[in-house]
Design a protein around this nucleic acid. Sequence first.
DNA 1: CTAACTACCTGAACGC
DNA 2: TGCGTTCAGGTAGTTA
Length: 292
Amino acid sequence: MTRHHGRVPELPEVESIRRQLAPLLTGRTIVGVKATPQRRFSRLDEAAGRRISAVNRRGKYLLLPLVPAPGAGDPAGRSSPDRELVMHLGMTGSFRLADPDPYVRATFHLLADPAGPHGGEGAALHFRDVRRFGRLSVVDAGDYSTIATLAQLGPEPLSEEFRPDAFHAALAGSRMPVKPYLLTQRPVAGVGNIYADEALWRARVNPHARRVGRERARALWEAIRAVLAEAIEREGTTFRDYAMVNGESGRFATFLTAYGQAGRPCARCGEPLVKTVLGGRGTTYCRVCQRR
DNA sequence: CTAACTACCTGAACGC
DNA sequence: TGCGTTCAGGTAGTTA
Protein backbone atom coordinates (compact mmCIF):
# COMPACT_ATOMS: atom_id res chain seq x y z
CA MET A 1 0.00 0.00 0.00
CA THR A 2 0.88 3.59 -0.31
CA ARG A 3 3.49 5.01 1.97
CA HIS A 4 2.76 8.51 3.04
CA HIS A 5 6.16 10.00 3.56
CA GLY A 6 5.34 10.63 7.17
CA ARG A 7 2.36 12.77 6.28
CA VAL A 8 -0.79 12.54 8.26
CA PRO A 9 -3.49 11.16 5.99
CA GLU A 10 -5.97 13.86 5.04
CA LEU A 11 -8.65 13.73 2.38
CA PRO A 12 -6.36 13.31 -0.65
CA GLU A 13 -4.39 10.50 0.97
CA VAL A 14 -7.55 8.73 2.11
CA GLU A 15 -9.03 9.06 -1.36
CA SER A 16 -5.86 7.57 -2.82
CA ILE A 17 -6.14 4.65 -0.41
CA ARG A 18 -9.83 4.25 -1.21
CA ARG A 19 -9.03 3.94 -4.90
CA GLN A 20 -6.45 1.27 -4.18
CA LEU A 21 -8.68 -0.69 -1.84
CA ALA A 22 -11.91 -0.57 -3.85
CA PRO A 23 -11.00 -3.18 -6.50
CA LEU A 24 -9.37 -5.39 -3.88
CA LEU A 25 -12.21 -5.40 -1.36
CA THR A 26 -15.47 -4.83 -3.20
CA GLY A 27 -17.51 -8.02 -3.19
CA ARG A 28 -15.19 -9.79 -0.75
CA THR A 29 -16.58 -11.50 2.34
CA ILE A 30 -14.99 -10.94 5.73
CA VAL A 31 -14.76 -14.29 7.47
CA GLY A 32 -13.09 -13.13 10.66
CA VAL A 33 -11.45 -10.23 12.40
CA LYS A 34 -8.53 -10.34 14.78
CA ALA A 35 -7.69 -7.13 16.59
CA THR A 36 -5.69 -5.98 19.57
CA PRO A 37 -7.91 -4.67 22.35
CA GLN A 38 -8.13 -0.92 21.87
CA ARG A 39 -10.64 1.64 23.02
CA ARG A 40 -10.93 3.02 19.51
CA PHE A 41 -12.11 -0.30 18.09
CA SER A 42 -15.72 -1.34 18.46
CA ARG A 43 -18.03 -4.14 17.33
CA LEU A 44 -15.45 -5.47 14.85
CA ASP A 45 -16.72 -9.01 15.38
CA GLU A 46 -19.91 -7.98 13.58
CA ALA A 47 -17.95 -7.59 10.36
CA ALA A 48 -17.48 -11.35 10.20
CA GLY A 49 -19.90 -13.15 7.91
CA ARG A 50 -20.63 -10.04 5.90
CA ARG A 51 -19.67 -8.99 2.39
CA ILE A 52 -18.14 -5.62 1.52
CA SER A 53 -20.48 -4.09 -1.04
CA ALA A 54 -18.52 -0.88 -1.64
CA VAL A 55 -15.52 1.15 -0.51
CA ASN A 56 -16.70 4.72 0.00
CA ARG A 57 -15.20 7.81 1.57
CA ARG A 58 -16.53 10.81 3.47
CA GLY A 59 -13.91 13.36 4.49
CA LYS A 60 -11.10 11.32 6.06
CA TYR A 61 -13.37 8.38 6.84
CA LEU A 62 -13.55 5.19 4.83
CA LEU A 63 -17.05 3.70 4.80
CA LEU A 64 -17.56 0.07 3.86
CA PRO A 65 -21.20 -1.05 3.69
CA LEU A 66 -21.53 -4.67 4.83
CA VAL A 67 -24.16 -7.05 3.46
CA PRO A 68 -25.03 -10.27 5.27
CA ALA A 69 -23.39 -13.11 3.38
CA PRO A 70 -25.53 -16.11 2.41
CA GLY A 71 -25.35 -18.58 5.28
CA ALA A 72 -26.77 -21.97 6.13
CA GLY A 73 -30.10 -20.55 7.24
CA ASP A 74 -30.12 -17.77 4.70
CA PRO A 75 -29.30 -19.31 1.35
CA ALA A 76 -30.28 -16.37 -0.78
CA GLY A 77 -28.69 -13.69 1.30
CA ARG A 78 -29.78 -10.12 1.37
CA SER A 79 -28.64 -7.44 -0.98
CA SER A 80 -28.79 -4.40 1.24
CA PRO A 81 -26.20 -3.56 3.90
CA ASP A 82 -27.24 -3.90 7.54
CA ARG A 83 -23.86 -2.84 8.96
CA GLU A 84 -21.08 -0.48 7.99
CA LEU A 85 -17.38 -0.62 8.73
CA VAL A 86 -16.16 2.90 9.50
CA MET A 87 -12.40 3.42 9.42
CA HIS A 88 -10.33 6.48 10.28
CA LEU A 89 -6.55 6.36 9.91
CA GLY A 90 -5.79 8.84 12.66
CA MET A 91 -2.20 9.98 12.53
CA THR A 92 -0.34 6.90 11.40
CA GLY A 93 -2.86 4.39 10.10
CA SER A 94 -2.26 2.48 6.86
CA PHE A 95 -3.29 -0.74 5.18
CA ARG A 96 -1.29 -3.60 3.84
CA LEU A 97 -2.17 -6.92 2.29
CA ALA A 98 0.98 -8.75 3.33
CA ASP A 99 3.96 -8.66 5.65
CA PRO A 100 2.24 -7.91 8.92
CA ASP A 101 4.58 -6.43 11.52
CA PRO A 102 4.27 -5.64 15.24
CA TYR A 103 2.38 -2.44 14.45
CA VAL A 104 -0.55 -4.27 12.87
CA ARG A 105 -3.49 -3.62 15.21
CA ALA A 106 -6.25 -5.41 13.29
CA THR A 107 -6.52 -8.01 10.56
CA PHE A 108 -9.59 -8.69 8.43
CA HIS A 109 -9.54 -12.20 7.01
CA LEU A 110 -11.22 -12.39 3.63
CA LEU A 111 -12.94 -15.31 1.98
CA ALA A 112 -11.08 -16.76 -0.94
CA ASP A 113 -11.97 -15.00 -4.16
CA PRO A 114 -12.38 -17.52 -7.00
CA ALA A 115 -12.05 -14.73 -9.54
CA GLY A 116 -9.01 -13.24 -7.88
CA PRO A 117 -5.54 -13.09 -9.36
CA HIS A 118 -4.35 -15.97 -7.19
CA GLY A 119 -7.16 -18.31 -8.11
CA GLY A 120 -9.06 -18.21 -4.85
CA GLU A 121 -6.25 -17.95 -2.40
CA GLY A 122 -7.37 -16.51 0.93
CA ALA A 123 -6.24 -13.04 1.79
CA ALA A 124 -6.10 -10.63 4.66
CA LEU A 125 -6.24 -6.88 5.07
CA HIS A 126 -3.95 -5.63 7.81
CA PHE A 127 -4.51 -2.33 9.57
CA ARG A 128 -1.17 -0.92 10.73
CA ASP A 129 -1.12 1.98 13.15
CA VAL A 130 1.95 2.92 15.17
CA ARG A 131 0.34 5.56 17.38
CA ARG A 132 -3.06 3.91 17.73
CA PHE A 133 -5.01 7.06 16.94
CA GLY A 134 -6.90 5.24 14.21
CA ARG A 135 -10.48 4.21 14.72
CA LEU A 136 -12.30 1.13 13.44
CA SER A 137 -15.99 0.80 14.15
CA VAL A 138 -18.80 -1.39 12.92
CA VAL A 139 -22.11 0.48 13.14
CA ASP A 140 -25.67 -0.09 12.00
CA ALA A 141 -25.67 0.92 8.35
CA GLY A 142 -25.93 4.69 8.05
CA ASP A 143 -26.11 5.25 11.79
CA TYR A 144 -23.19 7.50 12.73
CA SER A 145 -24.61 8.64 16.04
CA THR A 146 -21.69 7.08 17.94
CA ILE A 147 -19.16 8.93 15.75
CA ALA A 148 -19.88 12.60 16.42
CA THR A 149 -17.44 14.09 13.92
CA LEU A 150 -18.79 11.91 11.13
CA ALA A 151 -22.38 12.64 12.14
CA GLN A 152 -21.74 16.39 11.93
CA LEU A 153 -19.35 16.23 8.99
CA GLY A 154 -19.49 19.14 6.56
CA PRO A 155 -19.97 18.79 2.80
CA GLU A 156 -17.49 17.04 0.56
CA PRO A 157 -15.22 19.82 -0.70
CA LEU A 158 -15.13 18.58 -4.30
CA SER A 159 -18.87 17.97 -4.55
CA GLU A 160 -21.71 20.24 -5.57
CA GLU A 161 -22.83 20.22 -1.96
CA PHE A 162 -19.95 22.50 -1.05
CA ARG A 163 -21.19 25.99 -1.90
CA PRO A 164 -19.40 29.29 -1.36
CA ASP A 165 -22.39 31.10 0.11
CA ALA A 166 -23.15 28.36 2.64
CA PHE A 167 -19.44 28.17 3.47
CA HIS A 168 -19.36 31.90 4.13
CA ALA A 169 -22.45 31.59 6.32
CA ALA A 170 -20.81 28.79 8.30
CA LEU A 171 -17.67 30.87 8.88
CA ALA A 172 -19.80 33.86 9.89
CA GLY A 173 -21.68 31.70 12.36
CA SER A 174 -18.57 30.59 14.23
CA ARG A 175 -16.69 32.57 16.83
CA MET A 176 -13.61 30.37 16.55
CA PRO A 177 -10.48 31.41 14.63
CA VAL A 178 -10.93 30.21 11.08
CA LYS A 179 -8.20 27.57 11.09
CA PRO A 180 -9.30 25.64 14.18
CA TYR A 181 -12.83 25.88 12.86
CA LEU A 182 -11.78 24.24 9.58
CA LEU A 183 -10.17 21.44 11.58
CA THR A 184 -13.48 20.62 13.32
CA GLN A 185 -14.62 19.16 9.96
CA ARG A 186 -17.94 21.00 10.29
CA PRO A 187 -17.70 23.71 7.60
CA VAL A 188 -16.14 21.29 5.12
CA ALA A 189 -15.01 17.67 5.28
CA GLY A 190 -11.48 16.37 5.09
CA VAL A 191 -9.28 19.42 5.70
CA GLY A 192 -6.51 18.72 8.21
CA ASN A 193 -3.54 20.68 9.47
CA ILE A 194 -1.48 20.51 6.29
CA TYR A 195 -4.10 21.52 3.75
CA ALA A 196 -5.63 24.08 6.11
CA ASP A 197 -2.32 25.95 6.14
CA GLU A 198 -2.01 25.57 2.38
CA ALA A 199 -5.53 26.77 1.60
CA LEU A 200 -5.33 29.71 4.00
CA TRP A 201 -2.05 30.77 2.44
CA ARG A 202 -3.45 30.52 -1.07
CA ALA A 203 -6.53 32.51 -0.13
CA ARG A 204 -4.50 35.04 1.86
CA VAL A 205 -6.62 34.46 4.92
CA ASN A 206 -5.05 34.86 8.36
CA PRO A 207 -5.46 31.63 10.33
CA HIS A 208 -6.37 33.61 13.47
CA ALA A 209 -9.21 35.50 11.78
CA ARG A 210 -12.53 35.21 13.58
CA ARG A 211 -14.37 37.13 10.90
CA VAL A 212 -14.02 36.25 7.23
CA GLY A 213 -15.84 38.41 4.72
CA ARG A 214 -17.71 37.11 1.71
CA GLU A 215 -14.84 37.77 -0.67
CA ARG A 216 -12.27 36.05 1.49
CA ALA A 217 -14.64 33.16 2.18
CA ARG A 218 -15.10 32.72 -1.52
CA ALA A 219 -11.33 32.72 -2.03
CA LEU A 220 -10.90 30.17 0.73
CA TRP A 221 -13.65 28.01 -0.74
CA GLU A 222 -11.81 28.03 -4.05
CA ALA A 223 -8.41 27.44 -2.46
CA ILE A 224 -9.64 24.42 -0.50
CA ARG A 225 -11.03 22.85 -3.65
CA ALA A 226 -7.91 23.62 -5.66
CA VAL A 227 -5.38 22.37 -3.16
CA LEU A 228 -7.28 19.14 -2.44
CA ALA A 229 -7.88 18.45 -6.13
CA GLU A 230 -4.22 19.01 -6.90
CA ALA A 231 -3.13 16.76 -4.04
CA ILE A 232 -5.45 13.97 -5.18
CA GLU A 233 -4.09 14.26 -8.69
CA ARG A 234 -0.53 14.04 -7.44
CA GLU A 235 -1.30 11.08 -5.24
CA GLY A 236 -2.63 9.22 -8.21
CA THR A 237 0.00 9.98 -10.78
CA THR A 238 3.67 10.74 -10.61
CA PHE A 239 4.22 9.13 -7.26
CA ARG A 240 6.90 6.59 -7.97
CA ASP A 241 8.91 8.69 -10.36
CA TYR A 242 10.33 11.02 -7.81
CA ALA A 243 13.63 10.61 -6.12
CA MET A 244 13.19 9.95 -2.47
CA VAL A 245 15.25 12.26 -0.35
CA ASN A 246 15.30 11.62 3.39
CA GLY A 247 11.98 9.85 3.24
CA GLU A 248 10.00 12.48 1.42
CA SER A 249 9.32 12.77 -2.24
CA GLY A 250 10.54 15.76 -4.17
CA ARG A 251 7.07 16.49 -5.45
CA PHE A 252 5.81 16.71 -1.89
CA ALA A 253 8.44 19.26 -0.97
CA THR A 254 7.70 21.45 -3.96
CA PHE A 255 3.94 21.18 -3.71
CA LEU A 256 3.51 22.67 -0.26
CA THR A 257 3.97 26.41 -0.03
CA ALA A 258 3.16 26.98 3.64
CA TYR A 259 3.08 23.85 5.78
CA GLY A 260 6.54 22.90 6.98
CA GLN A 261 8.07 25.97 5.31
CA ALA A 262 8.57 28.16 8.38
CA GLY A 263 11.55 30.47 7.98
CA ARG A 264 11.57 30.12 4.22
CA PRO A 265 10.50 33.10 2.14
CA CYS A 266 6.86 33.40 1.18
CA ALA A 267 6.46 32.41 -2.48
CA ARG A 268 4.42 35.55 -3.11
CA CYS A 269 6.14 38.35 -1.20
CA GLY A 270 9.42 36.96 0.11
CA GLU A 271 8.64 37.63 3.76
CA PRO A 272 9.86 34.73 5.91
CA LEU A 273 6.95 32.49 6.88
CA VAL A 274 6.31 32.29 10.60
CA LYS A 275 5.21 29.36 12.69
CA THR A 276 2.95 29.71 15.69
CA VAL A 277 0.68 27.47 17.71
CA LEU A 278 -3.03 27.96 17.13
CA GLY A 279 -5.63 25.74 18.72
CA GLY A 280 -2.78 23.56 19.91
CA ARG A 281 -1.56 22.92 16.37
CA GLY A 282 1.50 24.08 14.51
CA THR A 283 0.49 26.82 12.07
CA THR A 284 2.65 28.34 9.36
CA TYR A 285 1.63 31.48 7.49
CA CYS A 286 2.78 34.77 5.99
CA ARG A 287 2.28 37.81 8.18
CA VAL A 288 2.34 40.11 5.17
CA CYS A 289 0.14 38.29 2.64
CA GLN A 290 -2.24 36.89 5.21
CA ARG A 291 -3.08 40.05 7.09
CA ARG A 292 -5.95 40.10 9.51
C1' DC B 1 -25.37 24.70 22.28
C1' DT B 2 -20.52 26.43 21.53
C1' DA B 3 -15.82 26.81 22.61
C1' DA B 4 -11.77 25.70 25.20
C1' DC B 5 -8.98 22.42 27.28
C1' DT B 6 -6.85 17.90 27.93
C1' DA B 7 -6.03 12.96 27.05
C1' DC B 8 -4.83 9.60 24.05
C1' DC B 9 -0.22 7.29 21.81
C1' DT B 10 4.62 6.39 20.50
C1' DG B 11 8.76 7.24 17.65
C1' DA B 12 11.74 10.91 16.48
C1' DA B 13 14.35 14.71 17.61
C1' DC B 14 16.72 17.19 20.92
C1' DG B 15 19.64 18.39 25.19
C1' DC B 16 23.14 17.28 28.35
C1' DT C 1 26.98 6.51 24.20
C1' DG C 2 23.01 6.83 26.81
C1' DC C 3 19.17 8.65 29.04
C1' DG C 4 15.54 11.91 29.98
C1' DT C 5 12.46 15.46 27.87
C1' DT C 6 9.75 17.49 24.36
C1' DC C 7 7.20 17.40 20.20
C1' DA C 8 3.80 16.05 16.68
C1' DG C 9 -1.24 15.90 15.75
C1' DG C 10 -6.95 14.07 14.72
C1' DT C 11 -10.33 13.22 17.41
C1' DA C 12 -13.15 12.47 21.62
C1' DG C 13 -14.33 13.34 26.11
C1' DT C 14 -14.86 16.71 29.71
C1' DT C 15 -15.61 21.19 31.54
C1' DA C 16 -17.05 26.04 31.61
